[in-house]
Design a protein around this nucleic acid. Structure first.
Lengths: 197, 197, 197, 197
DNA sequence: AATGAATGAGGATTCATTCAT
DNA sequence: AATGAATGAATCCTCATTCAT
């Protein structure tokens, strides 16, 4: 009598590992986060790890995809928002609030140095693309209704917003004095100055 | 009869290794740049490598310190410049021009993920500190002569300039469409908007 | 309420696994035939596998014993045959016809390299012994009625017949050009030359 | 001052490892001969092993190629021999004498079960081919001068000689009672009966 | 100083086997 | 009986580093 596969349980466990991975990568870097460390953090045996993820890289990719999914969701939910300029700022807000998880910034800088692992590079590009796509659409819409400057094309403005967000995350990771909360206002100003009005 | 050390030759060879290291780290990431790879690139044997650097990390630190030195030099040479606001923009220019070396951006993102190796973290902090110190001094001076806004303190402004520079480097590394040359003007605008006037 | 064990069903399933094992071992070698591969081929879960066989080795042993059983059966059925020389040639025929199953030769060479697993070695020896015993008896009988040379003792002649059969199987496995069908005649000649008359 | 590479030393050490590998494979089978076991037998560290052979398979291949080389050499040295039939029997002698090394037969049966590792399969085919080629040439020559039957083509006769040799080796490995020395005469008889005259 | 052979600690991954359901 | 998730021992292999020459 086959035990019915319990996808609930499966996904829960998977999330536990993803979470442990996020912690471990952020805390110890990619090399330092050995599968042993991750397994210990997740409370599982090494065999179990590879039951859920075929490789260590795959775990990292899963973490990234998690983020990519959230980004896509965010923009899908804002698809019909009346004020695209507003959506852009909401996304900025959203991105910064992601940094409230103290592991996020660390993870981002770790993963940025892994462009040489092809799988990870792919996931990284997908992540970037998702954010760029969402931003670009909204920038374009905002340009149409003249709430954003039109002398720079939407793609470049999107890149620049990401530049600010990535730089912001980098600073959070690099400097103890740079506290997300306190700097959000300046970030908004920078984005505003970028988008013009 | 010990051959007298020829410091000329010594330093030259050291530079060759540093250069090979920069290439290798940028091209293959930290893990992918094995000492074997670096040695091959430098045209030396592995034994020789460890004559010049006690560890692989030490090479990375040396590369970083090279950059830190340049930063310090830059600000020292501008110490008595009459227009500190100008110096800030010159530094931005200087930093961007560093990205003309196609390895630079790659190296930066690689090294950003290595905060967990203590030696490297130290060097990274020193590098950051050098730039921040130089910028802060000039921001402060510029604030004194009212060419920079005074409603944000110098330290934070310095951090924000670095945020823009790091974000910029990150974009250069991440996106083929983001070409340093073409984006410099926008960068200057953003810095200007940051500093007010 | 324990479902009454259905021995019919049990044996059938066991045979399915044995068959899958034969296929897998022949196709992928001992190491390549992981229990997962075998289970997939047999259409069962891994847990089920270990209901039927306590270890992977035990499956291999069962396959071997299957063959050993057939060998014993063959010689039992020929026990009272009037012409023992004939029985020997029939056995050769029988052995060659076993090679019609394209998995047989592959399996034989795989299993030959596993003398170091004690269980398997035991089964292998038993298999060898069964064939040797059957052959030896018939050789001896044939010697008695002078239809086989008497200047070599029965044991050695039996070994030499096995030598020819094993070599034959090995060639079938090793060389695509060596087709059992076409070579049977030569095999019979060699056996004849061995036994004299 | 580069220590001059000492190819003497290199080859010697390589041979030590090859020898240890032969012992280990023959004694423990492929799986049982872990790299650790081989290294211990060779008196080297695991790192050293992989300095000489990129993989465990490569060591096995090297052992095989060693044999292949000997085979080729044998036939090259006999290239201009006046009596090709004699050469064939000399080769049989040569092959049997190789079995005096008690590890040889064990190694052969182990390696026969590894056809699924592509590198090994390739080496195995090359080995087979070398022997077949040498035999075939001599069979053909012998057929020309009528010292070997002509009703079977040279290729098939070569295969049959190998069949006898492989079967012989298999018996030596399988049965303690089957001693190479004592059985050589019968082997020669079988080959003679095969070749006719 | 320069070399590269030698080392072995450490890491990712595999897989037979167990066991709760 | 049947399942497959969970396990961890065991394996191959990598690579920074040492050291005799």
């Amino acid at each position: 009598m086959p035990r019915p596969v319990d996808p609930q349980r499966y996904r829960a466990r998977r999330l536990v590992i993803i979470d442990a991975g996020l912690t471990a990568f952020a805390e110890h870097g990619y090399a330092g986060a050995t599968t042993a460390v991750i397994c210990r953090a997740a409370g599982i045996g090494s065999g179990t790890f590879f039951h859920y993820f075929p490789t260590k890289d795959a775990l990292l990719v899963a973490i990234l995809e998690h983020g990519t999914g959230e980004t896509r969701e965010f923009f899908e939910q804002s698809a019909d928002a009346p004020d695209p300029r507003r959506v852009i700022f909401d996304y900025v807000e959203h991105a910064v609030s992601g940094l409230r998880d103290p592991r996020a910034a660390g993870f981002i800088s770790v993963v940025g140095g892994l462009t040489h692992r092809p799988e990870i590079a792919r996931a990284l590009r997908a992540d970037d693309e998702a954010a760029r796509f969402g931003l670009r659409s909204n920038v374009r819409a905002a340009q149409r209704d003249r709430s954003v400057r039109t002398d720079m094309d939407a793609e470049r403005l999107a890149e620049w917003i990401l530049l600010l967000l990535d730089g912001f995350a980098g600073r959070v990771a690099a400097s103890d004095d740079f506290v997300a909360e306190r700097e959000t206002r300046t970030l908004n100003e920078q984005v505003a100055s970028l988008l013009g009005n």
